[in-house]
Design a protein around this nucleic acid. Structure first.
Lengths: 338, 338
DNA sequence: TTGTACGCGTTATCAG
DNA sequence: CTGATAACGCGTACAA
């Protein structure tokens, strides 16, 4: 008997005078088990300090007790928020978190992910936007019998495989808020092309304008790439063309702050001369002055929800909720036009 | 024979007509093995597409092929830089990256880490600052026979267990740079108390002043906590007391940017009225205007180096290098005093 | 409801 | 240098 090494399931079985399988049932919370036996075994587990060996379970189950976050997203704040959300979701469980970046443009991306799944065999995978939009990755997970949840801006899979915000409605609300304040000439700084989230955000902008009976002025729309610099560039281009907008909606906070700084550099006061609204609610948005009115993107809650979907058994209530609404945060960067 | 499932070491052994153990030796690059046998086995491995099963290896070796980053650091950019560094270090290997946050103030922190180590059995652990300063955690790793590398601002362990920057010298150089520009009244915004890195940075500040024969003016020194707000507060307090400094050194970029914004709000021009220098070289520091002169902290390289120390065998050259120097980045926030 | 015998895929021991 | 056999610790048919 191991007087030195860690107790195993065999030790528990011997002391409790039951079989290994019974102990295994207790560990795995099998329903068909008499309460008396369960209690007896649990007492022994406590007594001798038995902790199941994860590596052995992983070998037998062909699956590690790990959730992997797979991403191609360079934004640090976003990434950390997602990680925090997942970690909250797996707190007080035996799961751990792995991080696996991928290169969206690599031709070997699928082979890379395949190799990762094959090696680490995570219990489940959280696919972060924008790579989460790629159906082939979800297919890959299914092939490896690995649970997965895709984070996105629209419902891009079955309820149990997706958590999503409602970017379109949220932007519609935000722009409607500007319109209600009296703004009619509203500039838009878009996100990068080819992804769902920027597309949805633009669609929300258009819907708000249309519902208010306002004409869409293409000369007030500028491309962007979700970076600070692209916000600066867009705003400068707007002003170089003699921008007559009284408000700017930027598709994320980084660009909004870039635009804010560009405007100020050109002598425009924020918010007196130009109101600005962003999207994301990054920490910086509340730090700057004036603080940025923005749409809170519940990324951490989405990640938490994703983790729960992965570890909760199929059929649990958590499998049904997939929508985490984004909501407008009113701060200091918006006033009625003068 | 598995016509469907993946080939195992047994299949390789059978086809190559050798024993399991020999195949195992090939996989693990055992030195005592005839080249002929090795080549034969390697050919078979290629032929039938054998990939070693990590879970089985983990069970046998009592150790997962995973490197864990353990941290209590809330700064997103820092965290992501470290993760990127580790991931670069383990690129093209079979290792994966896990992330495990801990609560510095929790009384159960050691028990928590113990439980983590016991469950996931990582191959090695990278301890991030400031928690890396705690010797008890290194002790814990040793107890679990788990490799570890501590990231810090001074050499807080043997060479093979530490990677460090030279914050003190770097700050000394930065402040000397300000002095060389002609500044003599230089304010200091410190980092949080009780940690090595802020202490080293302050020491560097003092050394620079002393070497230049400049008196340390306590009225120009303000506490800070590495946050944007604390930078704002410190600068405002300085100005409220009629600050007569022509330059500010902040112990990190976030506070430097906070100070910059506070100064500007009070009508001071940057850099004409006040020069500012930060520390870290965060992305934002080059995005803002004027761009921030700062000390580049080679955090990503440190993390990469840490990962290599963990996976390289003891005695490798990588085990000896532990110092990654921080260097001054001259940008737009410093000019001679007027 | 519980137990028996075996499988999971690799590494370690020790003899040859 | 190589191989037979026993760990490693847990899960699952199938039987009882």
């Amino acid at each position: 008997m191991g007087t030195d090494s860690k107790p195993t399931i065999n030790d528990v079985a011997r002391v409790a005078n039951v079989s290994k399988k019974t102990v295994s049932r207790v560990i795995n919370k099998s329903p068909l088990l008499s309460d008396k036996t369960r209690e007896k075994v649990e007492a022994v587990i406590k007594e001798i300090g038995f902790v199941p060996n994860m590596q052995a379970r992983a070998l037998a189950l062909r699956r590690n007790f790990i959730i992997a976050a797979i991403h191609d997203n360079p934004n640090a704040q976003f990434l950390v928020n997602v990680q925090q959300g997942i970690l909250e979701g797996i707190a007080d469980t035996e799961f751990g978190l792995m991080v696996q970046p991928v290169d969206r443009n690599s031709p070997t991306i699928e082979a890379d992910i395949r190799a990762f799944l094959e090696r680490q065999r995570p219990y489940g995978v959280v696919l972060l936007p924008p790579i989460s939009e790629r159906d082939s990755l979800a297919e890959l997970c299914r092939e490896f019998d690995c649970r997965y949840v895709r984070m996105g801006s629209v419902q891009l899979d079955d309820a149990e495989h997706v958590v999503s915000s409602n970017d379109r409605e949220a932007v519609r609300d935000a722009v409607t808020y500007l319109i209600d304040k009296g703004h009619t000439r509203i500039a838009l700084i878009e996100g990068p092309e080819g992804f769902t989230s920027p597309r949805e955000r633009r669609a929300g902008f258009e819907e708000a304008m249309e519902r208010a009976g306002l004409e869409l002025d293409e000369s007030l729309i500028r491309p962007g790439s979700y970076t600070f610099e692209s916000g600066v560039t867009a705003a400068e281009d707007l002003m170089a063309k003699g921008m007559n907008a009284t408000a700017i909606f930027a598709c994320n906070d980084e660009m909004a702050i870039g635009a804010m700084i560009a405007c100020r550099r050109h002598g425009l006061r924020i918010p007196e001369d130009v109101s600005i609204v962003g999207f994301d609610d990054t920490p910086l948005s509340s730090h700057i002055w004036p603080s940025l009115t923005t749409v809170h993107w519940p990324i951490k809650q989405m990640a938490l929800s994703a983790a729960r979907k992965i570890i909760d058994p199929p059929g649990s209530p958590s499998q049904q909720d997939w929508l985490l609404p984004s909501t407008l945060i009113e701060r200091g960067s918006v006033v009625p036009p003068t």
